[in-house]
Design a protein around this nucleic acid. Structure first.
Lengths: 159, 159
DNA sequence: TATGAAATAAGGGGGCT
DNA sequence: AGCCCCCTTATTTCATA
């Protein structure tokens, strides 16, 4: 092991105990180190060390409250597929859109379009304005799929 | 001698305080009640009470560690758009797919297809098997968009 | 093991009906 | 006036470093 820091480790194997810890923290991000220790058979400080290491390695990128978007006024979710007007131009689309707060996620994809954006706004008019901003900022054409309802979301993966 | 805090006391600020708390917890789901109190000008227990109420009302649905999917062996993300073979059949697609652990999210959408699923697997072969399972379980045809890379994801919304 | 945070109980003030 | 909601303070228990 010569990797001692200076960038996220991408292809690291996560061993069994780390896997358990990550699994538990994905299901309950506020679980205490004491409870994590009980669940894994480790001491509190051993768990703490492992969690800190997982955070430093970038395996755990952070923690978040999962919030009902409607309850905070973001009633409209949509997926926007984008394709550059000029396919020969250098692709800096993610960077150009990075500061648009309505964009929750940006995925580069295989298929007809180049990127899929997941966005949240309050109203259809805001979506209209957002689409105009995206087209202008990134130099893209858009195809938008409006979400009608979300049976489930943010389910922790079984790893 | 009992200074109650720096902020003005206004009952109209109640909604605003909840919004602040939710905002902070979306950005850092493990922030302590003490720190939330410092950030909002409330006492620890006032924050605690508000958070519990937000949880009970369903505004805060839970907490999760945000994990680098690749680091835990889920290297392949895809969006699967599904459409029922028999459009006249009763639509219980979300229920039929609810127990498939690879499905992280299920959105009902407007457009050519009825649902968009977000899935995570380890390998292309697993994706192939997952697609077969989805088609069989839910009685749908599928159109799959493979994610090549994810510039960003899980960004907390600005509320 | 010492410090700090979480949980719980008890007391007080302001707005609303 | 009375009620309800919500904030504070105080104390104990428990987690963290």
């Amino acid at each position: 092991m010569t990797e001692t820091g200076g960038g996220p480790v991408r292809s690291s194997a996560v061993e069994e105990l780390d896997r358990q810890i990550v699994d538990l923290l994905m299901a309950d991000g506020r679980m205490s180190y004491t409870d994590l220790g009980k669940a894994t058979g480790l001491s509190t400080s051993a768990v703490h060390q492992r969690v800190r290491r997982l955070e430093q390695r970038g395996v755990i990128r952070g923690y978040a409250a999962i919030v009902d978007a409607e309850a905070v006024g973001l009633s409209l979710t949509a997926f926007i597929s984008v394709k550059p007007f000029d396919p020969s131009a250098p692709d800096d689309i993610p960077e150009r859109l990075a500061d648009v707060p309505e964009i929750e996620a940006c995925h580069s994809v295989a298929g007809d379009e180049n990127y899929i954006l997941k966005v949240r706004v309050s109203t259809p008019i805001e979506l209209e304005h957002l689409l105009a901003r995206v087209r202008t900022l990134a130099g893209v054409s858009t195809r938008t799929t409006v979400v009608l309802s979300t049976p489930y979301e943010s389910r922790p993966p079984r790893i």
